[in-house]
Design a binder for these strands. Structure first.
Lengths: 478, 478
DNA sequence: ATACATACC
DNA sequence: TACTGGTATGTAT
DNA sequence: ATACATACC
DNA sequence: TACTGGTATGTAT
């Protein structure tokens, strides 16, 4: 059992994907992006030096203002559990430790362990391709409630160092350890002198140890003046390592200047390609291109680029903590079908599931959105605002089904809507006015109504549908 | 013949308006505004001192940046012809010179002379109220082509001092006389010394004289470092006067600080009331309220407020000149009616008229907007995008009528849509691809079709309609 | 308000 | 045979 | 994209 | 009896 080189890995992936509808759709998207980039370059060609210079000046003015607000007073830590889900499973099933394994299903992996990664098996890869890369791969289905429990334990450690830590997902958090450092400087004096470390480094090393003691899992960490830098740093000595970037403008600029833009959180595949077309691959190449960027990107992106180019980032974690949830959704992927009853029934089921999630969080919403993905991977959303915020599965379901019917009606009879994904989302959320009684009534009513009846389609399309859905489908056919 | 005091004038106006639908609608709008202001004050109440301080700091940072961009190098002049339309009429009919007169119709006045103003008769006042204030008032219907011609003469004078003068309307313009001052400093040396005036003042005085020689009409002017200040200044020594504000930060700040906000172009009735509720009536009170404003207004307004508070304004007139026209429209007010044929016919007529205007300017548009005002003065717009830009009256008319029909259909049969105004606007404009031939064909076709036929409504609703309109109305009724 | 694109885990 | 599910945010219309 | 509000002459 | 007409821009959804 040994790894492959990158070429071999790519070859296998290519063969596995090539010609699939997924791949075709991806290619189309890439073509569209290529066209957009071409147009962008064309626009860039037209720019007069005067215009560019003017734009550069304006950007420099913004940069000056941003620079003035630089805050180096905080010590921010980004902690990231190493291959979290996989690590938990390996901890609980030691026989998984020496074999290539991944957590996920046949359609998608969440994480893989380091042995599997040698074969090119990574998070975000579909299981069936992973198996081609590594036939010995052990696939463990995810066990979210367990991960959640472990995460809670890790949180307890975080709370020691910063009671206002900001959890970004089950395996990732930001901490502001500035206050802790001040309060406990003396206690670490000796420790950090011995290891020739800064106070921050000593504290974070200790924190990671405590996490390991509490969970038997390792974490990596980045220490810097703001979240953006800390996040980049946590990636540098993975796994089970940490990286400290001194809070000093000079050090930060040296660091950021040679950093590939793609390392920055928020710069994804598309932005990377766009910037690359402009000759920008490193953060240090942003500033020399201020004028060009100003003329090509939106104000919002510009601000973002300027801040990246200066190594600036968030220093106030309350900006992550405070926000209310904006939307809640549930979706499901299935083998492509155009059976109207099946699709309608799925929407109803999703609405009921969504109701459960909303209930748990005490949320109600005003905007119902139906999400569809065709068998060709074309995503669409259709939404409709409600008069009143609700989480009533009947109401949400009715609206979502109406939206689905409208989509079906748009398709010609000879090529009916054929989907592989359906989702229902609620947004414009507010807190539920906790009159638990009334809600309960509604729910029971709903279940009373949901007696099963047979669809009246041909046998090949046969499926179980609830009465109300059957009625709507009926109406649609008439 | 003598004037009235303000109380008497207001009393007459109140009596004339009171109880009218117009007045009722205005009252409703005021109530809505009062509610909005109340809510705003409530929000203001909730603000913690910390929040306010933070907001203040951010605003001050913006102010600093704006201040850094202050440009005192230009000398901008705002020239405003004195009671322009009225003055032209008085010039051409000398017997009007000694009587109270106004230009306008029974429904609205454009200008009044200074005698009429003593009675409270002003621009924007309906003629029938003006008559109650001043029964002797002579109402002269406007003669736009004549005013346009006079305006052209005035423009010739402007061109001497600044070839890039920016006409804001027939009777108003901005000039940047900086270059002229440099080039002609010597010539004015003696003149300005004698009158103890600055160079700028001497030049503007001469310009006003030239205007008077050329047109027998007087103009007032403001001279300052930017258009915002110049505009305010031109109002200070009206009529036939000028005001010079030195381009010196100290002088500007003294000037602006004691200036009522309402004098600023762009601050109208609503904003004045809002700011007043916050205790702001003078421009000098803006800066002490930066934090409050920041928390209550949009970014766009904030920028505007900051610039006002610093006495900053536009110094580059090309920003007025360069822009293409964004929309073109025509509208008509009539005695309220709900006769569908009449309304439909009016929309057709407006489309034809609009076509004429667009043709003259060589414009085509993509977005058709129908504007309606009910007999209760409720304004609405309904728009629809076209596939292709056009100025074809048939196309525009068809869409506009469709929009009108949709509005009619929304009304219950027992209270049909009753309108006092209809308008058609085209926007998303572009230059007409000057294939004059094809257009011509379309126009003639249109006139061929427009043979008159009688409507089939009851006699009280009887009116003439073209065939195509009759057909649409017919379809609507079915 | 809607729809869709981008991004992150 | 075959490419997730949940959420936030930006952008365009 | 739409609708509407504010403002100016 | 009875309160314009034309355009731009901002704001909300």
């Amino acid at each position: 059992m040994q790894g492959f080189d990158a070429a071999k890995i790519n070859e296998i992936i290519r063969k596995a994907s090539e010609g699939s509808r997924f791949y075709q759709h991806k290619q189309q998207a890439q073509q569209k992006l290529d066209a957009k980039i071409k147009e962008m370059l064309h626009t860039a060609q037209q720019m007069s030096p005067q215009l560019l210079e003017k734009a550069t000046k304006k950007m420099e003015a913004v940069a000056l203002e941003c620079e003035a607000g630089r805050d180096l007073s905080r010590t921010i830590v980004h902690v990231d559990m190493d291959m979290f889900y996989a690590a938990v499973e390996m901890r609980d099933q030691p026989n998984l430790k020496d074999v290539p394994m991944a957590v996920g299903g046949n359609s998608m992996l969440s994480t893989s362990n380091y042995i599997a990664r040698k074969f090119g098996v990574r998070a975000g890869m579909p299981g069936f391709i992973a198996r081609q890369l590594c036939p010995a791969l052990v696939l463990v289905p995810p066990n979210f409630s367990k991960y959640k429990a472990v995460s809670r334990v890790v949180e307890q450690v975080f709370a020691i160092y910063d009671p206002n830590y900001a959890m970004m997902s089950l395996d990732e958090a930001y901490l502001d350890i500035t206050d802790y450092m001040e309060a406990n400087a003396d206690a670490y004096q000796a420790k950090s002198e011995v290891d020739n470390e800064t106070l921050a480094e000593a504290i974070v090393r200790e924190m990671r140890l405590k996490i390991q003691e509490a969970t038997q899992l390792t974490a990596s960490a980045g220490i810097a003046a703001n979240t953006r830098l800390a996040k980049v740093c946590s990636d540098l000595n993975k796994p089970n390592g940490q990286y400290y970037l001194p809070s000093d403008t000079r050090a930060i600029m040296d660091f950021i200047n040679k950093l590939p833009i793609r390392k920055i959180s928020g710069i994804g595949n598309v932005t990377e390609q766009q910037l690359k077309a402009l000759g920008i691959t490193l953060c240090g190449q942003i500033r020399p291109n201020y004028g060009l960027l100003r003329l090509l990107f939106s104000d919002c992106s510009l601000d973002y680029f300027v801040r990246i180019s200066l190594g600036l980032g968030e220093t106030d974690l309350s900006n992550y903590t405070s926000g209310e949830q904006k939307s809640i959704s549930t979706e499901t992927t299935f083998t492509g079908t155009s059976c109207k009853q099946k699709l309608m029934q799925m929407v109803s089921d999703l609405s009921i599931e969504l109701h459960g999630d909303m209930k748990k969080k005490g949320l109600v919403g005003k905007l119902v959105t139906l999400k569809t993905k065709t068998v060709n991977f074309v995503l669409k959303t259709r939404s409709m605002a409600l008069g009143e915020p609700t989480s009533d599965p009947e109401v949400m379901g009715k609206v979502a089904r109406k939206l689905l019917i409208a989509e079906m009606e748009k398709c010609p009879v000879d090529e009916p809507l054929s989907l592989r994904l359906l989702g229902v989302r609620m947004s414009n959320l507010s807190e539920e006015a906790s009159s638990g009684r009334a809600k309960q009534t509604t729910i029971s009513k709903m279940f009373e109504k949901q007696t099963v009846s047979a669809g009246r389609e041909s046998s090949s399309n046969y499926c179980l549908v609830t009465e109300s859905v059957a009625r709507e489908v009926q109406a649609f056919h008439d």
